[in-house]
Computed example of a mutant assay.
Amino acid sequence: MPNTNLKKYLPALREVCFSKLLLEDGLWYLLTTCKCISLEAGQILFEENTFKESMFIVLDGLLEVSKKYKHIAFRGVGEFVGEMALLESEPRSANVRAVDNSVVLEIEKNIFDNLLGNNPKIIWSISKTLSKRNRVDIGALESGYLELKRNEEKLLRIVNSISDLVFQIDPNGLIEFVNEPIRTLGYEVEDLIGKHFAEIYDGELDDEKKRHIFSRRTGTRSLNEIEFTLKVSPGCSLYNFTKTMSYFVSVLGLWNVPKEMVEAKEGEKEYLGSLLIARSQLLDLKL
């Protein structure tokens, strides 16, 4: 579909739940990179038990979701379908057909992963949308939603089970996320959320250190094996032996556009902060 015709679908794309996490260039990237599919009224978009790792956004018209000939829901402009097959990498769990002449945008797994890798908040936005949907057939829709929640919980368990510290820092230096191994230093996760990273960093955050910790680099350009030291909480038993712990840190910049657009240094984009993965220099430490 020519670019001149695609522009008319930008308003529809702005209606999608996660569109606020993408700037105009990011939305245009989706329109020009993904495939637009035109459907006639009554035409099947996909059937239950078929397999393809992609989701669809409705740009025009109306779709019906059904399972075993039971109506589940209608999906209109700005809504999406097929997301569970993409997230689960399993066959489709429902049928979708066009009620009216419709146009959908197909987002395949590689493009979705690219967006997710640079803006993890998108998955949470999709999850919230799923939780708010009115489900006529509870058995059909709730199973998909619960599977998504299980996947989120599984990811959280993995992040909390590793010995490395994982931080998400916003552009102002505030901690948005930290995993449970931070307790090794005597801190509780909930006590650090919203606090400035400088509160647990040992030393002064001069301009050079800020450039490292709040790095904007992505992909192969991201920083690795940066050394820094964190404070041990005075209430921690470890504090009797050492007041600080040293780490090797990898830093990845988070953006609201795909990494190709970040690396090209073109177009409008927004820096969302940085992801820090800190590995202790004392790997054999036993507490």
Rank of each mutant, 00 (worst) to 15 (best):
residue 157 R to W: 07
residue 139 G to N: 11
residue 94 A to T: 07
residue 94 A to R: 00
residue 97 R to G: 02
residue 123 I to D: 04
residue 135 R to S: 01
residue 133 R to I: 11
residue 89 S to C: 10
residue 117 G to N: 13
residue 101 N to L: 05
residue 111 I to Q: 11
residue 92 R to I: 03
residue 125 S to I: 11
residue 102 S to Q: 01
residue 98 A to S: 10
residue 102 S to R: 01
residue 126 I to K: 02
residue 128 K to R: 15
residue 141 L to I: 06
residue 93 S to W: 03
residue 107 I to C: 04
residue 126 I to G: 01
residue 143 S to T: 15
residue 125 S to D: 10
residue 96 V to Q: 02
residue 149 K to F: 14
residue 95 N to V: 02
residue 132 K to I: 05
residue 94 A to P: 02
residue 97 R to L: 07
residue 102 S to V: 02
residue 105 L to D: 04
residue 150 R to F: 13
residue 100 D to F: 07
residue 115 L to W: 00
residue 148 L to S: 15
residue 98 A to R: 03
residue 93 S to I: 10
residue 101 N to W: 02
residue 99 V to R: 00
residue 115 L to M: 10
residue 140 A to C: 13
residue 137 D to N: 14
residue 158 I to M: 09
residue 96 V to L: 00
residue 90 E to N: 10
residue 137 D to P: 01
residue 142 E to F: 02
residue 140 A to D: 01
residue 132 K to P: 00
residue 118 N to C: 15
residue 118 N to D: 10
residue 108 E to Q: 12
residue 143 S to K: 15
residue 128 K to H: 13
residue 86 L to T: 03
residue 133 R to A: 14
residue 102 S to L: 00
residue 86 L to R: 04
residue 96 V to M: 01
residue 101 N to F: 02
residue 104 V to I: 07
residue 98 A to T: 02
residue 124 W to G: 09
residue 101 N to T: 08
residue 150 R to V: 13
residue 151 N to A: 13
residue 100 D to T: 13
residue 101 N to A: 07
residue 117 G to H: 06
residue 106 E to Q: 05
residue 155 L to M: 11
residue 124 W to D: 15
residue 99 V to C: 05
residue 140 A to M: 09
residue 149 K to M: 15
residue 99 V to W: 02
residue 113 D to T: 07
residue 141 L to P: 01
residue 136 V to D: 15
residue 137 D to L: 04
residue 130 L to P: 02
residue 108 E to S: 05
residue 108 E to N: 11
residue 89 S to P: 07
residue 98 A to G: 04
residue 109 K to G: 03
residue 120 P to R: 06
residue 128 K to M: 13
residue 156 L to E: 09
residue 153 E to A: 13
residue 143 S to Y: 14
residue 123 I to L: 12
residue 142 E to A: 05
residue 145 Y to A: 12
residue 155 L to S: 10
residue 99 V to P: 00
residue 117 G to E: 08
residue 133 R to D: 14
residue 137 D to F: 03
residue 130 L to Y: 00
residue 85 A to L: 10
residue 111 I to H: 05
residue 104 V to E: 01
residue 123 I to Q: 04
residue 158 I to R: 06
residue 145 Y to T: 12
residue 117 G to D: 11
residue 100 D to Y: 08
residue 150 R to Q: 15
residue 158 I to Y: 08
residue 104 V to C: 04
residue 94 A to G: 07
